[in-house]
């Protein structure tokens, strides 16, 4: 019983990180209307950014989060300028192939600059366990959950209440009509991309802190997991994407429990294939980003 609960807790914590990745992913796809394959590489850069922030400013997870958000936000601007800006009206596969190229460049540049080996991440928190009834979780797990919940709520508030959120939703639904209403489509799409990439950066930091390790090639499977989770919401519905992330974390952890840890990624991709076979349009009605 205790074993099952601890799997459940691990699944939820891991799932919440996947949910954060998927949130960023669905914001980007929702706003630009184009699929991205740079998301995993952005997360990897977020992990590296947080590592150097920890080294420079000390092991504070909030400073790390801000640092990786800023670095990945800037990376988001570059990716937008290179892969999206000229192709918003072009056939979708052009931007898609462009993002694949960009992801290869980022990954290989990172391997050249940072080296290809796995590196240990700083331990941010003492390995202390908190007991709440039958549930046991570490301080780190609690902090991860708190960060993800706060970010998700903040994002939801931003999109439903602020004028920038409302304009971005308008742009995601109909770019022509939005521009004829005086909205700057390019600026909104850029802002959406920056937010999505920034969230990916924080997710990258959390996963590297959680695993206590990171490396230049970690982006590939992570990007695919963000994609798998977002597919549940038809790529653009953030609520379903977050749910998909949580679900993915649980499936992985229960899957590992009955098999072996080296099969971790298999469960994510079986999940992806099953969704694509039985519900390829996702569980949400199409309608731009929703939160």
């Amino acid at each position: 019983m205790d074993y099952a609960i601890s799997i459940l807790v691990n699944g939820i914590v891991q799932g919440s990180i996947y949910a954060l990745m998927a949130l960023g992913y669905s914001v980007i796809v929702g706003i630009t209307g184009l699929v991205t394959f740079t998301h995993g590489e952005v997360m990897m850069m977020g992990a590296f950014a947080s590592f150097y922030v920890f080294e420079l400013f000390g092991s504070n997870i909030l400073i790390g989060a801000i640092g990786s958000f800023i670095v990945c936000g800037i990376l988001g601007i570059i990716i937008y300028k290179v892969c999206y800006e000229r192709f918003l009206d072009a056939p979708r596969h052009i931007a898609l192939i462009c993002t694949i190229g960009a992801s290869m460049i980022i990954k290989n540049m990172a391997q050249i600059v940072f080296g290809p080996n796995q590196k240990p991440m700083f331990g941010i928190f003492e390995n202390q366990l908190i007991k709440i009834g039958p549930v046991q979780l570490s301080v780190l797990q609690l902090v991860i959950l708190a960060i993800v919940v706060i970010l998700a709520l903040g994002l939801s508030l931003f999109f439903s209440k602020s004028k920038y959120g409302i304009s971005m939703r308008a742009v995601s639904q109909d770019k022509t009509a939005a521009s004829l209403m005086g909205l700057n489509v390019n600026a909104n799409a850029l802002l959406g991309n920056v937010i999505g990439c920034g969230l990916a950066g924080i997710a990258g930091m959390l996963i590297s802190v959680y695993y206590q390790a990171f490396q230049a090639t970690m982006g590939g499977p992570l990007g695919m997991k963000a994609f798998s989770a977002s597919v549940l919401g038809g790529l653009t519905d953030s609520r379903f994407a977050a749910l998909g992330g949580l679900f993915l974390g649980l499936i992985e952890n229960f899957g590992i429990a009955v098999s072996s840890a080296s099969f971790r990624d298999i469960f994510a991709f079986i999940f992806l294939i099953l969704i694509l076979i039985f519900k390829p349009q996702g569980f949400s009605k199409k309608g731009g980003i929703k939160l």
């Binding site: 639904q173 109909d174 004829l180 209403m181 005086g182």
Partner: peptide, 30 residues
């Protein structure tokens, strides 16, 4: 188009192009 809209020209469409998944008030906010 957005510059022209800001100069003070607004339009509607032959085939309605509202932001369907947003409330009426939010549409007007835009």
């Amino acid at each position: 188009p957005e510059q022209i809209a800001r100069l003070g020209m607004a339009r509607t469409f032959q085939n309605i192009r509202l932001f369907k998944y947003m409330s009426v008030l939010e549409n007007v906010f835009i």
